[in-house]
Amino acid sequence: MNVYQNCWSLGTMITVLALLLGCQGSLGTDTPQAGTTPPFTLLKEQPSESRGVLEIRSELEERETPDEWTEIVLVGRIGSIEGEIWDPNRAAFVVLDESYVEPDQTHVSPQHDADNCPFCRANRKKAFASSALVEILDADGQIPAMHAGRLLGVDEGQTVVLQGRGRIDALGNLAVRATGVYVPKEGVGN
């Protein structure tokens, strides 16, 4: 038998065994699965007069009772200022005003404590005004116990139009309960 074959076959076997033993599964992002989307939340046509997060927030804050649910049509980009975008267990996610641009953080030292810096806190507060927390409601008015990305077939960075009710909650978030969702075709709003 060829000696090189002996050596290399053994080496290959050891390496493959090592890879198989050490394989800890893939670290994939959740891929939205089209086809699982229930029809009740998806709108075929874009609702008219949709407005951005900042505009709706501003209008609600001017009201005497900003914490009362009000009919809205919101357009936003899926993403978050910091932290999670998706609730893994419920159809809830974060959208940003389409005008929001992530600030340049390259000059910030890793040791800088933004929580104790009044300037950073003010900037963060301002940035958070550009975000809205969205919950998708099903026909029974319940939030489906499912990842919204898979439910709607959408992903981070995509623009969505949400029809439903909104209010400013006790934490100052723009909270949205959407009963209808329109997902513009590729390229719209991106």
């Binding site: 080496g11 050891i14 390496t15 090592a18 890879l19 033993l21 050490g22 394989c23 800890q24 599964g25 893939s26 670290l27 994939g28 992002t29």
Partner: peptide, 30 residues
């Protein structure tokens, strides 16, 4: 803990393959 070795075959993002650093010792020792 594992490290992503998918860069070896040029995969970027998404479905990486994680291999325990300990097991990388075997090809390393060879």
């Amino acid at each position: 803990p594992g490290v992503d070795i998918s860069w070896i075959w040029g995969a970027t993002g998404g479905n990486g393959l994680e291999v325990s650093t300990e097991l990388l010792l075997i090809p390393g020792l060879l």
